Measured scan of single mutants.
Amino acid sequence: VGDQVLEIVPSNEEQIKNLLQLEAQEHLQLDFWKSPTTPGETAHVRVPFVNVQAVKVFLESQGIAYSIMIED
């Protein structure tokens, strides 16, 4: 199991704000291929294997929908 690319769908401005804060966490080494800008629009982010669980827990705790787009 390696890195994953998640497709994330924020449903409101609050969730977009939370994702932008997540993007700013440099220690997570997230690679946003497509940043969140509009509710209902997908964002794509590559998550290093060591941080996959932490990111998924965060998304679930914020009620942000996501799916695994690419499993490496």
Results as ranks from 00 to 15, higher is better:
Leu6Pro: 01
Gly40Met: 06
Lys17Gln: 13
Pro48Tyr: 03
Glu13Asp: 11
Met69Leu: 11
Val47Tyr: 01
Phe32Cys: 03
Trp33Thr: 15
Glu26Pro: 07
Lys17Val: 07
Asn51Ala: 10
Gln15Pro: 00
Ser61Phe: 06
Gln62Tyr: 14
Pro39Leu: 06
Gln29Pro: 04
Ser11Leu: 11
Leu6Met: 06
Asn12Glu: 03
Gly63Asp: 07
Asn51Gln: 08
Lys34Ala: 07
Ile70Ser: 13
His44Cys: 15
Glu60Ile: 05
Ser11Asn: 09
Asn12Ile: 02
Leu19Pro: 00
Asn18Lys: 14
Asn12Val: 01
Ala65Lys: 14
Ser61Tyr: 06
Glu7Asp: 04
Thr42Lys: 11
Val47Ile: 10
Ala54Thr: 10
Ile64Ser: 00
Trp33Met: 14
Asp31Ser: 11
Asn12His: 03
Ser35Arg: 15
Tyr66Asp: 00
Met69Thr: 06
Asp31Val: 15
Thr38Gln: 11
Asn18Pro: 02
Gln15Glu: 05
Ala24Asn: 08
Val9Gln: 06
Thr37Asn: 06
Lys34Leu: 07
Ser67Phe: 08
Gly2Pro: 08
Val47Thr: 02
Gly2Thr: 10
Phe32Arg: 02
Asp31Cys: 15
Gly63Cys: 05
Val45Phe: 03
Glu60Leu: 04
Ile64Cys: 01
Ile8Pro: 01
Thr42Tyr: 05
Gln4Ile: 15
Val45Tyr: 02
Thr42Gly: 05
Glu14Gly: 07
Phe58Val: 04
Glu41Gln: 08
Ile16Gln: 02
Gln25Pro: 02
Gln4Trp: 15
Glu14Thr: 10
Gln62Pro: 00
Asn18Leu: 15
Ile64His: 00
Gly63Glu: 05
Ile64Asn: 00
Ser35Ala: 12
Glu13Thr: 07
Glu41Thr: 07
Leu59Ile: 02
Glu26Thr: 14
Ser35Met: 14
Glu41Arg: 05
Val9Met: 13
Gln53Asp: 14
Ile8Met: 05
Ser67Tyr: 08
Gly40Asn: 06
Ala65Gly: 07
Leu20Val: 07
Gln15Asn: 02
Met69Glu: 04
Glu23Thr: 10
Ala24Val: 07
Glu41Ala: 09
Tyr66Phe: 09
Gly2Val: 09
Ile8Trp: 02
Val55Asp: 00
His27Pro: 05
Thr37Pro: 07
His27Ala: 09
Asn12Pro: 00
Glu7Pro: 00
Ala43Thr: 13
Glu26Val: 10
Asn12Ala: 02
Ala65Thr: 10
Pro10Leu: 08
Pro36Arg: 02
Ser35Glu: 07
Lys34Gly: 05
Ala43Met: 13
Val1Cys: 15
Arg46Pro: 01
Trp33Phe: 15
Glu7Lys: 10
Gln62Cys: 15
Glu26Lys: 15
Val1Met: 10
Glu41His: 05
Val9Gly: 02
Ser11Val: 14
Glu14Lys: 08
Asp3His: 14
Leu30Ile: 10
Lys17Trp: 10
Glu41Pro: 02
Pro36Ser: 05
Ser61Gly: 07
Gln21Val: 11
Gly63Asn: 08
Asn18Ile: 15
Asp3Gly: 14
Leu19Trp: 01
His44Gly: 04
Val52Lys: 03
Gln15His: 07
Val45Pro: 01
Leu28Arg: 02
Ala43Trp: 15
Leu20Pro: 01
Phe32Tyr: 05
Gln53Asn: 12
Val55Ile: 07
Gln53Thr: 08
Pro39Glu: 03
Ala65His: 14
Trp33Ser: 12
Asn12Lys: 02
Phe49Ala: 15
Glu26Ile: 12
Asn51Met: 08
Asn12Met: 03
Gln62Lys: 13
Ile64Thr: 01
Val50Met: 12
Val5Ser: 05
Val55Met: 06
Glu60Gly: 03
Ile16Trp: 05
Val55Gln: 00
Asn18His: 13
Asp31Asn: 12
Gly2His: 11
Leu20Gly: 05
Gly2Met: 11
Gln21Met: 12
Ile68Phe: 05
Gln25Asp: 12
Val50Asn: 11
Gln62Ser: 10
His27Arg: 05
Leu22Gly: 03
Leu28Met: 08
Leu28Thr: 03
Pro48Cys: 05
Pro36Gly: 04
Val9Asp: 03
Ser67Glu: 08
Gln21Trp: 15
Val47Gly: 01
Arg46Lys: 09
Gln29Asn: 13
Leu30Trp: 03
Thr37Glu: 06
Trp33Asn: 06
Gln29Leu: 08
Val47Pro: 01
Val9Trp: 14
Gln4Arg: 06
His27Cys: 10
Val1Ser: 13
Glu71Phe: 07
Gln25Met: 14
Glu14His: 09
Asp31Leu: 09
His44Thr: 15
Ile8Lys: 01
Val5Ile: 13
Phe49Glu: 12
Asn12Asp: 11
Leu20Asn: 06
Ile64Arg: 00
Gln25Thr: 11
His27Asn: 10
Gln62Met: 14
Ile70Lys: 09
Thr37Gly: 06
Ile68Lys: 03
Leu22Asp: 01
Ile16Pro: 00
Val52Gly: 03
Ile64Ala: 01
Ile68Asp: 04
Val9Ser: 07
Ser61Val: 07
Ser11Ala: 13
Leu30Pro: 01
Leu6Ile: 07
Glu26Gln: 12
Leu19Arg: 00
Tyr66Val: 02
Glu23Leu: 14
Ile16Gly: 01
